[in-house]
């Protein structure tokens, strides 16, 4: 009996219980609420299942408007971030210039401060620049959030490209630009793809910046969800929107896994 107890993987069990309580159970509860029409105490499971609240949520024009706003904002922010950060990442990976390490660390330091306080101070600045309540304001604040990821990840990716591969390309006649285009970029692409995808997903779910700088005029999907959770007595509205908000990230992550393969994705994240 004692031997059997000793053979048990106690840390594993504790971790599993922790995951069930703090990760799976809340997710399960949200899922159950999203498909619940009636749930009365003391029943453990809903007394009536159904899609009634899905139809109610999805027929609202403001929900769709917020969804498209979020998609457009995420696409613009990801595109701009790529345009600004990828050349910078290449410079950090392949060039030597004064203050290189300091610059790299500065992106990290920006994320070391409490984000809410940082965004409030930026929002105050934006107020004087008439950027509050505008798309431009939301784009800028969300763009700032993406810099760390879009610089650090691609920098690691560019650094990971074998110098010999680049030299071999130059050796067979490629100009520096051709070396970059035909060898460096394709080699770093899986990791860059992972960074772009994560930027898109993070931006889609970004709440604090959009709320402090954009609301109420720029209504994104997470803000819509917040208002539904805070202002609606019916729990199902928030639950339906929460489950619906999973869809883009789930599709994107599955797509990324299919296109890039799990090893490339892990490589992009520094594994």
């Amino acid at each position: 009996m004692t031997g059997w107890i000793k053979r048990l993987d106690w840390p594993g069990y504790v971790l599993a219980i922790f995951l069930i309580f703090f990760v799976l159970l809340p997710i399960l509860t949200v899922f159950i609420w999203a498909f619940t029409e009636q749930w009365f105490y003391p029943s453990i499971l809903p007394t009536k299942w159904g899609l009634k609240y899905w139809f109610k949520v999805l027929e609202r024009g403001d929900v769709w408007a917020a969804f498209f706003t979020s998609i457009q904002l995420s696409a613009i922010v990801t595109g701009l971030s790529a345009l600004i950060c990828l050349p910078a990442a290449y410079a950090f990976a392949r060039m030597d210039f004064p203050g290189k390490q300091l610059f790299m660390m500065s992106f990290l330091m920006g994320n070391a401060f409490p984000r809410f306080a940082l965004i409030i101070s930026i929002a105050v600045l934006f107020l004087s620049l008439n950027l509050v309540g505008t798309w431009a304001g939301v784009i800028i604040i969300q763009l700032l959030n993406t810099i760390l990821l879009m610089i650090w990840l691609p920098t690691a990716a560019f650094q990971g490209v074998s110098r010999n591969m680049e030299e071999a390309a130059a050796d067979v006649g490629a100009t520096p630009l051709q070396v970059f285009w035909h060898v460096t970029l394709p080699q770093a692409l899986p990791a860059i793809g992972a960074a772009l995808l994560m930027t898109f997903v993070w931006t889609f779910y970004e709440t604090e910046g959009a709320w402090l700088v954009g609301a109420p005029r720029v209504q994104t999907m997470p803000l819509m969800m917040m208002s539904m959770i805070n202002n609606q007595l019916v729990v199902q509205y928030g639950a339906v929107l929460s489950v619906a908000l999973w869809v883009p990230s789930l599709v994107a992550l599955l797509l990324a896994r299919r296109v890039m393969g799990s090893d490339s994705f892990a490589k992009g994240l520094g594994a």
């Binding site: 010999n164 591969m165 030299e167 071999a168 060898v183 692409l189």
Partner: peptide, 11 residues
């Protein structure tokens, strides 16, 4: 040049 690491382009 033939490199020690082969330096083939894996893509």
């Amino acid at each position: 040049m033939v490199f020690q690491s082969h330096a083939l382009w894996t893509h």
